[in-house]
Nucleic acid binder design. Structure first.
Lengths: 337, 337
DNA sequence: CTGAAAGCGCTAACAG
DNA sequence: CTGTTAGCGCTTTCAG
């Protein structure tokens, strides 16, 4: 690493004091236009690059945000990350990416490390219900945190999520309207806020109305592999199922894959509906009927809140709930009577 | 932001000098076991968190790496990012994520910003051929850079890629072996190193041998949408094509989608082969035959090189070429004669 | 083994 | 408008 040009070098070279250089380059008022231009020219010529580490040390702001997701390979989180990065960039911040693998301890390790780096804010889906101590730690860490799932009612965190319950209910009503009555639901890990919200909305909606239905509910990993595994179990235990609601699209992909493997046709033998509406939902065969949520928007909005919080604006925890909608494609079919 | 506990506070509280605290906490030798334990206890009790910004300022290492990809939503890059993050974490570094959108200027802006933040290394796919000035800037910026594509022969950068040419050749030989002779290739943007490597290998292999074939080659966006668009054009201009090699899997997805839309069956009417072997390749219908490359490995290896470079080990630009292989699934079929 | 002191590069009062 | 002077919190010689 060759020696960097510092603000002192620029000052010496332009015959002014470092503070003048600082002001000239920061674009703050209070500098003669002439000197400012001269300083800028010199800085340019010398290839001066301000050292943001030094700046951060004195200002206390690092202009860095962090996003902790369970796994960036999940297309849902990739889209969230993209929305978040776009917003971060717009706010001239960088985004550190962390993969928690749904591991509480690992997640907290990341948080501690990020706090030491003095990030200006953290965006995370606190995947498992954190214990009291951990929640306490997050709440009092002094750095703004926005959660991508519903938090405990009176928690101190801002949250931003899709309306999972409503989405679950939409799926339920849709399957019921198609005449299905032997229905299964593939959920994620128990205690996973978003997954369980979908499950709750789904079960509640099926239980409501004149002819209540009780679905078979299976819990497992909210991944492609999880979808496969749960579907295998499902077929073994309940071969007469006619419709499946998967808690997210990649689980639905897994379910479809396993169903086809087992010789079932979709949607002729079994209807499948997902949740998320990731880009690839329209790619699989058949195109997946699913619950749409504005993923990119969610990442973007979350960072915008973070930025506002980091600006020290207000403190009242804000909760945004994005609307969802049913996207009808070709993976569900009216039940043959 | 409540006031942070500093090393000075810990020093005062434990009745020693800051330098002793520093040594005690850094685990460096040269501290009496007793004092070290005492200091540690005090630090623990006070909830002391070292300020890494300050540390970085003096040590000159930020323990932060950056990854610039065109778009994290591309499952290929998500997997690269995961591999990179895993390796970064293993080396106790954080990873900043940037999306260049295949935009040269945007990419250079990121680089400048990252340099100001004094990242320890940058991992990027310099998507378009950079101009001389930009290459020069990167080569002399003083920060290790590893490229995810082949660079100019005598360039100063480390590169780590899959064997694109070989992959293209594998696809060519495979399609030819199935009896196809009217073959199309959907490539990415011209000048995109990896894409064009695949194209070159493909075209060359088809041109070789006793009965040379000249494929129809179309250039476009290396995305799902790009695959759709190119396929639409292809069908219009060359309706008699029997096989398509897409330069990556998501383009292949787009192609399949468009072919089905146009009433073609796969693989009965048209065979499709992709490149990358992303996880979802096995999910689409029919499961995609594709060229496998070790994506996670590539991200991981790239960061490991970066880490070694950041450690100031050696300077000789290293070039790693990962082997590829053909994964036969169900999207290609022997041509009916 | 430990303390004192000198910065890392920059910003931010405070004078002038 | 510009220079002086303190630090930000930490590591790292250099003495003792």
């Amino acid at each position: 690493m060759q020696k960097e040009v510092t603000i002192g070098d620029v000052a010496r070279e332009s015959g002014v004091n470092v503070s003048t250089v600082s002001r000239a380059l920061s674009g703050v008022y209070g500098v003669h236009v002439q000197t400012r231009e001269r300083v800028r020219a010199v800085a340019e010529r010398m290839g001066y690059r301000p050292n943001r580490v030094a700046r951060s040390l004195v200002t206390g702001r690092s202009h860095t945000l962090a996003l902790i997701v369970s796994d960036i390979r999940n297309p849902f989180f990739a889209e969230v990350a993209r929305g978040a990065e776009d917003a971060a960039r717009a706010g001239s911040c960088d985004l550190i990416l962390c993969n928690s693998d749904l591991d509480n301890a690992k997640q907290m390790q990341y948080v501690e490390s990020l706090l030491e780096k003095r990030v200006d804010g953290i965006l995370m889906n606190s995947v498992w219900a954190l214990d009291k101590k951990q929640q306490q730690r997050l709440a009092t860490c002094g750095v703004p945190i926005v959660l991508l799932n519903r938090a405990a009612p009176r928690s101190a965190f801002c949250t931003i999520t899709a309306d999972n319950e409503q989405g679950g209910a939409l799926a339920a009503d849709y399957l019921r309207s198609l005449g299905h009555r032997r229905i299964a639901h593939l959920s994620g890990p128990k205690r996973h806020g978003n997954m369980t919200g979908r499950t709750a909305g789904f079960v509640r909606a099926l239980a409501a109305g004149p002819r209540p239905i009780t679905p078979v509910v299976l819990y497992g990993s909210n991944s492609f592999a999880g979808g496969i595994e749960l579907t295998r179990k499902l077929i073994a235990a309940h071969p007469d199922i006619t419709a499946i609601f998967a808690a997210n699209d990649i689980m639905a992909f897994g379910a479809i894959r396993e169903l086809i493997q087992a010789g079932r046709r979709i949607p002729d033998d079994v209807s499948v509906i997902g949740f998320d509406d990731i880009e690839l939902a329209s790619v699989v065969h058949p195109p997946l009927t699913t619950i749409h949520q504005p993923i990119h928007e969610i990442g973007k909005a979350a960072v915008e809140i973070l930025l506002r919080l980091a600006g020290g604006v207000n403190k009242a925890p804000e909760h945004r709930l994005f609307g969802v909608s049913l996207v009808e494609r070709q993976s569900c079919k009216r039940l043959n009577t």
